[in-house]
Computed example of a mutant assay.
Amino acid sequence: MMKTGLWKKVTGVALVGALALSLAACGSSSASSTKKADTKTGLAALKEKGTITVGMMAATPPYEYHLVQGGKDQIVGSDIQLLDKVAKELGVKYEIKDMDFDGLLVALQGKKIDMIISAMSPTAERAKNADFTDVYYKGRNVMLVRKGDVNKYKTAKDFANARLTTIKTSVQEGIIEKELPNAQLKLLGKSTEEAIDLANNKVDGALVDIPTAILLTRGNPNIALSKVYFEDPSAGAAIAMPKGTDPEIMKAINKVIKESKPQYEEWLKKATNNVKDI
Protein backbone atom coordinates (compact mmCIF):
# COMPACT_ATOMS: atom_id res chain seq x y z
CA MET A 1 0.00 0.00 0.00
CA MET A 2 1.34 3.47 -1.07
CA LYS A 3 2.10 6.09 1.51
CA THR A 4 -0.13 9.17 1.44
CA GLY A 5 2.71 11.56 0.48
CA LEU A 6 3.81 9.38 -2.38
CA TRP A 7 0.26 9.00 -3.60
CA LYS A 8 -0.15 12.78 -3.75
CA LYS A 9 3.07 13.14 -5.78
CA VAL A 10 2.00 10.48 -8.27
CA THR A 11 -1.46 12.02 -8.60
CA GLY A 12 0.06 15.46 -9.13
CA VAL A 13 2.38 14.20 -11.86
CA ALA A 14 -0.53 12.43 -13.57
CA LEU A 15 -2.65 15.58 -13.52
CA VAL A 16 0.17 17.69 -14.94
CA GLY A 17 0.72 15.11 -17.69
CA ALA A 18 -2.97 15.00 -18.53
CA LEU A 19 -3.12 18.78 -18.66
CA ALA A 20 -0.10 18.92 -20.96
CA LEU A 21 -1.64 16.34 -23.31
CA SER A 22 -4.89 18.27 -23.27
CA LEU A 23 -3.16 21.53 -24.18
CA ALA A 24 -1.11 19.82 -26.88
CA ALA A 25 -4.27 18.35 -28.38
CA CYS A 26 -5.95 21.74 -28.34
CA GLY A 27 -2.91 23.33 -29.91
CA SER A 28 -2.77 20.63 -32.57
CA SER A 29 -6.45 21.05 -33.29
CA SER A 30 -6.08 24.82 -33.47
CA ALA A 31 -3.06 24.57 -35.80
CA SER A 32 -4.91 22.08 -37.96
CA SER A 33 -7.93 24.37 -38.15
CA THR A 34 -5.72 27.32 -39.02
CA LYS A 35 -3.95 25.29 -41.70
CA LYS A 36 -7.26 24.25 -43.22
CA ALA A 37 -8.47 27.84 -43.12
CA ASP A 38 -5.32 29.00 -44.91
CA THR A 39 -5.47 26.30 -47.61
CA LYS A 40 -6.67 27.83 -50.88
CA THR A 41 -8.10 26.04 -53.87
CA GLY A 42 -9.11 26.85 -57.40
CA LEU A 43 -8.33 30.27 -58.80
CA ALA A 44 -7.17 31.62 -55.43
CA ALA A 45 -4.55 28.86 -55.15
CA LEU A 46 -3.35 29.55 -58.69
CA LYS A 47 -2.97 33.27 -57.95
CA GLU A 48 -1.04 32.44 -54.80
CA LYS A 49 1.28 30.24 -56.85
CA GLY A 50 2.07 33.33 -58.88
CA THR A 51 3.73 31.78 -61.95
CA ILE A 52 2.64 28.95 -64.24
CA THR A 53 4.66 26.93 -66.75
CA VAL A 54 3.14 26.77 -70.23
CA GLY A 55 4.15 24.06 -72.68
CA MET A 56 4.21 24.66 -76.44
CA MET A 57 6.05 23.74 -79.60
CA ALA A 58 7.43 27.15 -80.51
CA ALA A 59 8.22 26.22 -84.10
CA THR A 60 4.79 26.64 -85.68
CA PRO A 61 4.48 30.21 -86.93
CA PRO A 62 2.27 32.16 -86.96
CA TYR A 63 0.85 30.50 -83.83
CA GLU A 64 4.08 30.44 -81.79
CA TYR A 65 7.67 30.86 -82.90
CA HIS A 66 11.06 32.26 -81.87
CA LEU A 67 11.93 35.81 -82.88
CA VAL A 68 15.35 37.32 -82.24
CA GLN A 69 15.34 41.11 -81.93
CA GLY A 70 18.19 43.20 -80.58
CA GLY A 71 20.03 40.05 -79.63
CA LYS A 72 17.10 38.88 -77.49
CA ASP A 73 15.29 35.65 -78.28
CA GLN A 74 11.58 35.71 -77.53
CA ILE A 75 8.57 33.57 -78.41
CA VAL A 76 5.81 35.41 -80.24
CA GLY A 77 2.67 34.62 -82.25
CA SER A 78 -1.12 34.57 -82.06
CA ASP A 79 -1.15 31.94 -79.29
CA ILE A 80 1.15 34.14 -77.21
CA GLN A 81 -1.32 37.01 -77.46
CA LEU A 82 -4.04 34.68 -76.23
CA LEU A 83 -1.76 33.46 -73.43
CA ASP A 84 -1.11 37.06 -72.33
CA LYS A 85 -4.84 37.61 -71.84
CA VAL A 86 -5.35 34.25 -70.09
CA ALA A 87 -2.49 34.92 -67.65
CA LYS A 88 -3.88 38.37 -66.88
CA GLU A 89 -7.33 36.94 -66.19
CA LEU A 90 -5.87 34.24 -63.92
CA GLY A 91 -3.70 36.79 -62.12
CA VAL A 92 -0.42 34.99 -62.79
CA LYS A 93 2.84 35.36 -64.70
CA TYR A 94 4.02 32.61 -67.04
CA GLU A 95 7.13 30.82 -68.19
CA ILE A 96 7.24 28.96 -71.51
CA LYS A 97 8.68 25.49 -71.92
CA ASP A 98 9.45 24.84 -75.60
CA MET A 99 9.34 21.16 -76.63
CA ASP A 100 8.32 18.80 -79.42
CA PHE A 101 4.57 18.49 -79.90
CA ASP A 102 4.39 14.79 -79.02
CA GLY A 103 5.95 15.46 -75.60
CA LEU A 104 3.47 18.10 -74.47
CA LEU A 105 0.75 15.88 -73.03
CA VAL A 106 3.33 13.66 -71.35
CA ALA A 107 4.80 16.74 -69.67
CA LEU A 108 1.32 17.89 -68.59
CA GLN A 109 0.56 14.50 -67.04
CA GLY A 110 3.95 14.49 -65.32
CA LYS A 111 3.21 17.94 -63.83
CA LYS A 112 6.22 19.46 -65.57
CA ILE A 113 3.95 22.08 -67.12
CA ASP A 114 0.64 23.61 -65.99
CA MET A 115 -1.07 24.07 -69.35
CA ILE A 116 -0.57 23.63 -73.10
CA ILE A 117 -1.19 26.38 -75.63
CA SER A 118 0.06 25.07 -78.96
CA ALA A 119 -2.86 24.97 -81.42
CA MET A 120 -3.77 21.58 -79.93
CA SER A 121 -7.08 19.96 -80.89
CA PRO A 122 -9.20 18.37 -78.14
CA THR A 123 -9.53 14.88 -79.60
CA ALA A 124 -11.28 12.09 -77.68
CA GLU A 125 -7.93 10.34 -77.16
CA ARG A 126 -6.25 13.43 -75.75
CA ALA A 127 -9.25 14.14 -73.53
CA LYS A 128 -8.44 10.95 -71.62
CA ASN A 129 -5.32 12.61 -70.28
CA ALA A 130 -6.24 16.30 -70.16
CA ASP A 131 -9.13 18.71 -69.70
CA PHE A 132 -9.70 21.09 -72.61
CA THR A 133 -11.09 24.59 -72.71
CA ASP A 134 -13.47 25.84 -75.38
CA VAL A 135 -12.07 26.02 -78.92
CA TYR A 136 -10.43 29.34 -79.83
CA TYR A 137 -9.61 28.67 -83.52
CA LYS A 138 -10.38 26.25 -86.34
CA GLY A 139 -8.79 26.25 -89.78
CA ARG A 140 -8.17 24.10 -92.90
CA ASN A 141 -5.23 22.02 -94.07
CA VAL A 142 -3.41 21.91 -97.39
CA MET A 143 -0.85 19.57 -98.92
CA LEU A 144 2.45 21.23 -99.74
CA VAL A 145 4.44 19.97 -102.74
CA ARG A 146 7.53 21.00 -104.68
CA LYS A 147 6.80 23.76 -107.17
CA GLY A 148 7.45 21.53 -110.14
CA ASP A 149 4.87 19.00 -108.90
CA VAL A 150 1.88 21.32 -108.49
CA ASN A 151 0.22 20.01 -111.68
CA LYS A 152 1.12 16.41 -110.82
CA TYR A 153 -0.96 16.37 -107.65
CA LYS A 154 -4.46 17.71 -108.36
CA THR A 155 -6.64 15.54 -106.12
CA ALA A 156 -6.26 13.61 -102.88
CA LYS A 157 -6.14 10.37 -104.89
CA ASP A 158 -2.91 11.52 -106.51
CA PHE A 159 -1.27 11.20 -103.09
CA ALA A 160 -2.57 7.66 -102.50
CA ASN A 161 0.86 6.00 -102.60
CA ALA A 162 3.03 9.05 -102.14
CA ARG A 163 5.71 9.71 -99.50
CA LEU A 164 4.11 12.15 -97.08
CA THR A 165 5.10 13.89 -93.88
CA THR A 166 3.43 15.76 -91.03
CA ILE A 167 3.85 16.45 -87.32
CA LYS A 168 3.80 13.46 -84.98
CA THR A 169 0.54 13.12 -82.94
CA SER A 170 -0.99 16.06 -84.85
CA VAL A 171 -4.50 16.25 -86.32
CA GLN A 172 -2.86 16.09 -89.75
CA GLU A 173 -1.42 12.68 -88.90
CA GLY A 174 -4.94 11.40 -88.31
CA ILE A 175 -6.16 12.90 -91.59
CA ILE A 176 -3.46 11.15 -93.61
CA GLU A 177 -4.00 7.82 -91.85
CA LYS A 178 -7.72 7.99 -92.59
CA GLU A 179 -7.78 9.56 -96.06
CA LEU A 180 -4.52 8.15 -97.47
CA PRO A 181 -3.91 4.85 -95.64
CA ASN A 182 -1.51 3.52 -98.32
CA ALA A 183 0.78 6.54 -98.28
CA GLN A 184 4.28 6.22 -96.81
CA LEU A 185 4.06 8.47 -93.77
CA LYS A 186 7.09 10.10 -92.16
CA LEU A 187 6.39 11.80 -88.83
CA LEU A 188 8.50 14.76 -87.73
CA GLY A 189 8.74 17.10 -84.75
CA LYS A 190 8.59 20.54 -86.40
CA SER A 191 6.93 22.08 -89.47
CA THR A 192 10.27 23.53 -90.59
CA GLU A 193 11.63 19.97 -90.80
CA GLU A 194 8.72 19.05 -93.08
CA ALA A 195 9.59 21.88 -95.47
CA ILE A 196 13.26 20.87 -95.56
CA ASP A 197 12.45 17.20 -96.30
CA LEU A 198 10.00 18.24 -99.02
CA ALA A 199 12.43 20.65 -100.67
CA ASN A 200 15.18 18.00 -100.60
CA ASN A 201 12.96 15.38 -102.27
CA LYS A 202 12.82 13.13 -99.20
CA VAL A 203 9.01 13.24 -99.30
CA ASP A 204 6.42 14.14 -101.97
CA GLY A 205 4.03 16.13 -99.83
CA ALA A 206 3.61 17.71 -96.40
CA LEU A 207 0.22 18.25 -94.80
CA VAL A 208 -0.04 21.44 -92.71
CA ASP A 209 -2.63 24.06 -91.81
CA ILE A 210 -3.00 26.96 -94.24
CA PRO A 211 -1.33 29.76 -92.21
CA THR A 212 1.73 27.55 -91.62
CA ALA A 213 1.74 26.53 -95.30
CA ILE A 214 1.83 30.16 -96.44
CA LEU A 215 4.81 30.88 -94.23
CA LEU A 216 6.68 27.72 -95.22
CA THR A 217 6.38 28.59 -98.91
CA ARG A 218 7.49 32.14 -98.21
CA GLY A 219 10.69 30.85 -96.63
CA ASN A 220 11.26 28.02 -99.11
CA PRO A 221 10.99 29.07 -102.79
CA ASN A 222 11.11 25.44 -103.97
CA ILE A 223 7.79 24.42 -102.38
CA ALA A 224 4.21 25.53 -103.03
CA LEU A 225 0.59 24.98 -101.97
CA SER A 226 -1.09 22.25 -103.97
CA LYS A 227 -4.77 22.34 -104.94
CA VAL A 228 -5.55 19.59 -102.44
CA TYR A 229 -7.21 20.71 -99.21
CA PHE A 230 -8.47 18.75 -96.23
CA GLU A 231 -11.04 19.95 -93.72
CA ASP A 232 -10.09 19.82 -90.06
CA PRO A 233 -12.14 16.92 -88.61
CA SER A 234 -11.37 17.99 -85.06
CA ALA A 235 -13.17 20.59 -82.98
CA GLY A 236 -10.31 23.05 -83.53
CA ALA A 237 -7.55 24.45 -81.29
CA ALA A 238 -8.04 24.62 -77.53
CA ILE A 239 -5.98 25.00 -74.36
CA ALA A 240 -5.11 21.76 -72.55
CA MET A 241 -5.19 21.69 -68.75
CA PRO A 242 -4.37 18.93 -66.22
CA LYS A 243 -7.08 16.33 -65.74
CA GLY A 244 -9.44 17.41 -62.96
CA THR A 245 -8.72 21.15 -63.27
CA ASP A 246 -10.90 23.24 -60.96
CA PRO A 247 -14.09 24.43 -62.76
CA GLU A 248 -13.46 27.99 -61.54
CA ILE A 249 -10.16 28.08 -63.44
CA MET A 250 -11.72 26.62 -66.60
CA LYS A 251 -14.54 29.16 -66.40
CA ALA A 252 -12.04 32.03 -66.19
CA ILE A 253 -10.07 30.77 -69.22
CA ASN A 254 -13.22 30.15 -71.27
CA LYS A 255 -14.32 33.70 -70.50
CA VAL A 256 -11.10 34.98 -72.10
CA ILE A 257 -11.54 32.68 -75.12
CA LYS A 258 -15.09 33.88 -75.69
CA GLU A 259 -14.00 37.51 -75.53
CA SER A 260 -10.91 36.92 -77.71
CA LYS A 261 -12.34 34.80 -80.52
CA PRO A 262 -13.11 37.76 -82.81
CA GLN A 263 -9.60 39.12 -82.18
CA TYR A 264 -7.78 35.84 -82.73
CA GLU A 265 -8.21 35.94 -86.52
CA GLU A 266 -6.63 39.39 -86.53
CA TRP A 267 -3.77 38.22 -84.31
CA LEU A 268 -3.21 35.36 -86.73
CA LYS A 269 -3.09 37.65 -89.78
CA LYS A 270 -0.76 40.08 -88.03
CA ALA A 271 1.55 37.29 -86.87
CA THR A 272 1.62 35.86 -90.41
CA ASN A 273 2.62 39.24 -91.85
CA ASN A 274 5.28 39.71 -89.20
CA VAL A 275 7.08 36.43 -89.90
CA LYS A 276 10.11 37.18 -92.06
CA ASP A 277 11.88 33.83 -92.24
CA ILE A 278 10.85 30.30 -91.39
Rank of each mutant, 00 (worst) to 15 (best):
S30A: 15
K138C: 07
I113W: 00
A45I: 11
V150S: 08
K227S: 15
M241Q: 01
N254E: 07
Y264N: 00
E179Q: 15
V275C: 05
F132L: 10
D246T: 06
A130P: 01
L15F: 09
K35F: 10
I52Y: 03
R140W: 05
V171I: 15
K276C: 05
A25M: 10
E173G: 07
T165A: 15
N201S: 14
G189H: 14
I52N: 00
A127R: 10
I75L: 11
S29P: 01
T165M: 12
A238D: 01
M2N: 13
L198R: 03
D197M: 15
G12A: 11
T41W: 12
T51E: 07
S32K: 13
A24D: 09
A271W: 00
M57C: 10
A252D: 03
F230Y: 12
A31W: 11
A238F: 04
A127P: 01
I96C: 10
S121A: 15
D131R: 00
K49Y: 04
T272S: 14
G71E: 05
L187Y: 04
V86P: 00
G91P: 03
S260T: 06
V10M: 13
V135E: 06
K202H: 07
M241C: 07
D149I: 11
K128E: 13
T133H: 02
P62S: 14
D84G: 09
A58K: 03
L105Q: 03
Q69W: 04
G12W: 02
M56I: 06
K154S: 11
K72A: 04
Y94R: 11
I214A: 14
A14C: 09
W267L: 05
D102N: 14
K128C: 05
L19Y: 04
K178Q: 10
P62G: 13
K269H: 04
A206W: 02
Y65P: 00
D134R: 04
T272F: 05
K258W: 02
Y65L: 05
A87D: 05
V171L: 09
A213V: 06
E265V: 07
K49A: 13
Q172E: 14
I239Y: 01
K36P: 00
T11H: 08
Q184R: 06
L104Q: 00
T133G: 03
L46Y: 02
D131Q: 04
D38H: 08
F101R: 10
L104T: 02
L187M: 13
L15Y: 04
N254V: 09
D204N: 11
K168T: 09
I175K: 07
D232P: 01
T155S: 15
T212C: 09
V256P: 00
E177I: 11
L108A: 02
K154H: 05
S260M: 14
S29H: 12
A252L: 09
E48Q: 12
V76I: 07
K93E: 06
T53P: 01
H66E: 11
A20P: 01
A237Q: 04
L180D: 02
E231C: 07
D98A: 14
G205F: 05
A127E: 07
